[in-house]
Design a protein around this nucleic acid. Sequence first.
DNA 1: TTGAGATGCTAAAACCTTTTATCACTTGAG
DNA 2: CTCAAGTGATAAAAGGTTTTAGCATCTCAA
Lengths: 337, 337
Amino acid sequence: MITGHRPRATIRDVALAAGVSVSTASNALNGQGRTNSETRDRVKRIAEEIGFRPNALARGLLSRRSHSIGVITNDTYGRLTLPMTAGVSEALVDHGVSVFLCATNNDTRLAQLHLEALLDKQVDGIILTATRLDHTPQVDLSSLPMPVVYAFAEGPANSVSFVPDDCQGARLAVEHLISLGHRRILHITGPEDFVAVRRRATAYRGCLDAIGEKSEVMFGAWGEEWGHEAVRRILSRPEPRPGAIFCGSDETARGVIDALRDHGLSVPSDIAIVGFDNWHVVAAQTRPALTTIDMGLKELGRKAGLAMLDLTQGKPVEFGINAIGCSLVIRKSCGAV
Amino acid sequence: MITGHRPRATIRDVALAAGVSVSTASNALNGQGRTNSETRDRVKRIAEEIGFRPNALARGLLSRRSHSIGVITNDTYGRLTLPMTAGVSEALVDHGVSVFLCATNNDTRLAQLHLEALLDKQVDGIILTATRLDHTPQVDLSSLPMPVVYAFAEGPANSVSFVPDDCQGARLAVEHLISLGHRRILHITGPEDFVAVRRRATAYRGCLDAIGEKSEVMFGAWGEEWGHEAVRRILSRPEPRPGAIFCGSDETARGVIDALRDHGLSVPSDIAIVGFDNWHVVAAQTRPALTTIDMGLKELGRKAGLAMLDLTQGKPVEFGINAIGCSLVIRKSCGAV
DNA sequence: TTGAGATGCTAAAACCTTTTATCACTTGAG
DNA sequence: CTCAAGTGATAAAAGGTTTTAGCATCTCAA
């Protein structure tokens, strides 16, 4: 492969072409020091002409800010990580900060390797993500020389975390059903040992308590099969049937809808369904298309990115867990407009 | 936030503690120059003790190798990008190379911004990915001062590209059906203007030609709805029905399977189905679980990463398009063991 | 005893940028 | 005319590492 590229223009080239010293060129370009406006303009013009862009390595060496951060994730599908990381990097690219993505694949050795590479590269900060809010992190981040932010994960007490507001999201779902006139609302959800599952269930119960209705939570698994199984159980017991079901995930919701159709019940006219996740490939393909809760992963990433920016600039950032609001995505499975 | 961290140990600290000069310390650590073995061991031990790791910024400045590369993608779901990037970075992390992930979100301005940030950071190379093999890239990469590799995308003639072997993958699917005794095999697939779709269709036709059977391709859309529609068409026309269907995507396959069930036909006993993609959330949840083709995205990423490594080290790499083999994932939808 | 050759270590330069301290020169006031 | 203050530019240092060239010191042969 022929790579006949002459080396990039440095500030020395600019200085030479402008007939000034390197320091003057630097001052002119950065608006520092005392510079004659005529000189400044000339330097800037010439820099533009020869396409000078400062070497971030050299700059970082001096300023001790590499303008890069690391995102460590154990996600393998990309379902959570990519939208989130896109949010992070969208918030940061305007400030010249780029994002190293490190997929640990749940492998401790790999995670450690990634972390060391990040440290060597003098990243300004590290964002940790996980596929579960309550899973222990893959590496020890407790005594790093740079700030750490947790996104879609809950860090220790003296840290900054961003998580979806599961309670608010669940309330959004249930209140939507209530606003459509439903009273008998069932909650079919995932395994109880997920903190997110417990939170959504609690919020669901709160909503039904508030209107004086009985609540019922069926904990189970993720995946569609559990939706089928849950429907079997409901239909095999005495009436009355629920008028609506709030599902803990879109996959479960899909299983529920398919199972109801198999049993001759129609959605939404017989039973209304709300999901949780807005995982497009599932929610949009379900028949009828699924009304569901969007966790705003990109926005969550954006917020985490901005917090990181503040931290790296030494601005004060409040410790604690920031719950990011979810939103209701209305499709067809509830019968609402 | 309290960040009471003393600065990282530098090689000067090592030299000081070992009672040698900085150059000796460097030589000892890197095995360069002439160094007494006793001195070398002492320096290494002390470096270990005080946790010295060389500053990659300083090192990169001198060596003109930042040990980082950029991956530019327009994928928003993460379905393709995350496994691929994980493959890339898994291949590179052992060599101390980290990966900047840049999601352009199909926004030209954003793409340009990302590219400039990468150039400033002196990345050693750039890998471009796209959600379609045949889509024009988001940025102009034609005259960059560093190597470019295309992954899941086809670059210009004088470039290095890695793409899934759509033909081989399609053959794998069709031959699996043939090996199970099927002769009347239909192909329901996506829009004809995708090059991947055309290739799979061509390979499919080739297989049927080879056994002297008629082939039939139904081009349509992605998504499940097209699967339903296609089944309606097939069942509304005179017999005989196909004994097997090779679908151009897992989503389509799912639509087909669901539609067949709705019409009282059972999979695989009445009709066998093979999909394409091995998109886990779809393939594993389909009832019966989908036999499908895996494009080996992670392996593709790994290969692209290794090619990039060679390029950055000045080793010769052959131009051209490398087709990465797909594999057959057998589940339940064909009736095979 | 001298010189060559080997051995072990080090000073200095280089990579590129920014900042600090300093220098040369001009201007205006006293 | 002198001094102070202001203006515009620059040399040098700093950031952390690697490499090159060179400096001592020692050994051994002549």
